[in-house]
Design a protein around this nucleic acid. Structure first.
Length: 370
DNA sequence: TAGGCGTGGCG
DNA sequence: TCGCCAAGCCT
């Protein structure tokens, strides 16, 4: 990085010190964190909570994570408790948070740490990265925040802050190596954990994707994007590919007592091992008339409308059919879930939408089906 | 390595 | 309304 100082007007130490002074005053208070003043008193963060929160926060907003974090730490206060937990209980507790492979890897990781490391996490990034569900970002974050290791912690917030600070015009993801080097160059030896959290707080509250509050930014004197460009134009990103549409049918079978027929998805592919209502494969052509070939049993299936659900890589249009007064004995696949049990099932949001299309009183979905 | 993998909030 | 985005990982 010979060119590092050629196009900057501030030294790395000044960046870190300015940011840490800002963080001491303006840090967010979050359930898994200790404050800078607690840290100064020698209070250490709980590595279990740091790990759990970092995994939950992968591609997930802080607001969405808070309630799940509290639920998990109440049910399983230690990594030993989590390792001893039932897999299905963990999946049920995770339901609604998304990216379910995280929950499966969470359990695998807890088992490994208890078995191989005597219930204590390894304290360096390279060892942490060997564990399931822990990649470049999470290993560096745990090492820095829980164990005070000077690792460069680069997430989406840091990418935004760094590309603006240095006006990096290379598009993501090509710019990642450069971003990592620059982050490494400004990461301080003495408070790497606070520095990492400060960068993320800055990205989340000041250096936001839209309309950043540059007037309030502790780094505005050093920011090349602010000086020469429009910060909102950073980071530059490669163009996205368009999202295909898939079609399918879902069947909400209701017994006389209000129970809903559920089954378990396969252990491969999308939403693996989660609960679902019976349905067709998602690609099937619905030729305009009624597609009842995938129904769990013959009945008077009433069309309850079409729900739309956007996954990362495709858009799903699910036609929902509803039948009432079903005879439970005519089904030998899956299980009947009573109305007061449904909330505790491992149902992904797309399935709650489908059930809500047939029974709007059961699940309150923000954007109901048309 | 590029694509698979959820969900909810926001402008 | 809808595309974008949010503390990525795995294969």
């Amino acid at each position: 990085m010979q060119t590092l100082f050629a196009y900057r007007n501030t030294y790395p130490m000044d960046i870190a010190q300015s940011l840490l002074r800002w963080y001491d005053k303006h840090h967010r208070v979050l359930p898994w964190r200790i404050t800078p003043s607690q840290s100064a008193q020698g209070i250490k963060p709980d590595p279990y909570k740091i790990w759990l929160s970092e995994v939950m926060l992968q591609q997930t907003t802080v607001e969405a994570v808070k309630a799940y974090f509290l639920k998990f730490t109440k049910a399983w206060p230690t990594i030993d408790a989590l390792a001893a937990a039932d897999d299905d209980d963990i999946m049920r507790a995770w339901a609604g948070l998304g990216y379910y492979s995280r929950a499966r890897n969470l359990k695998k990781c807890a088992d490994l740490v208890v078995a191989d490391y005597g219930a204590g996490f390894p304290q360096n990034a390279a060892e942490l990265k060997k564990l399931p569900g822990i990649g470049d970002y999470t290993s560096a974050a745990i090492a820095a925040i829980a164990f005070n290791q000077p690792e460069p912690v680069v997430d989406g917030n840091v990418e935004r802050v760094i590309t603006r600070l240095y006006a990096i015009t290379t598009a993501l993801p090509q710019a990642k190596p450069q971003i990592r080097e620059l982050t490494e160059a400004i990461t301080p030896i003495d408070r790497p954990g606070d520095f990492a959290q400060a960068m993320m707080d800055l990205g989340a509250t000041i250096c936001t994707p839209k309309r950043p509050a540059c007037a309030l930014c502790p780094l505005n004197d050093s920011c090349l994007a602010l000086k020469d460009h429009d910060p909102e134009h950073f980071p530059v990103k490669a163009p996205k590919k368009d999202r295909p549409i898939r079609l399918g049918a879902a069947f909400v079978a209701e017994a006389g007592d209000g129970s809903i027929l559920l089954r378990k998805r396969t252990e491969k592919g999308l939403l693996q091992n989660m609960a679902e209502v019976p349905g067709s494969v998602w690609n099937s052509r619905i030729d305009g008339s009624t597609d009842l070939t995938a129904a769990p049993f013959a009945s008077d299936w009433r069309n309850a409308g079409v729900i739309t659900h956007i996954f990362t890589h495709f858009e799903l249009h699910l036609t929902v059919y509803h039948a009432t007064g079903a005879d439970k004995r005519q089904v030998n696949d899956g299980w009947w879930s009573a109305p007061d049990m449904l909330a505790g099932e491992a149902l992904p949001t797309v399935m709650k939408k489908a059930i809500a299309a047939a029974r709007p009183d059961i699940f309150k979905i923000r954007r109901p089906a048309k």
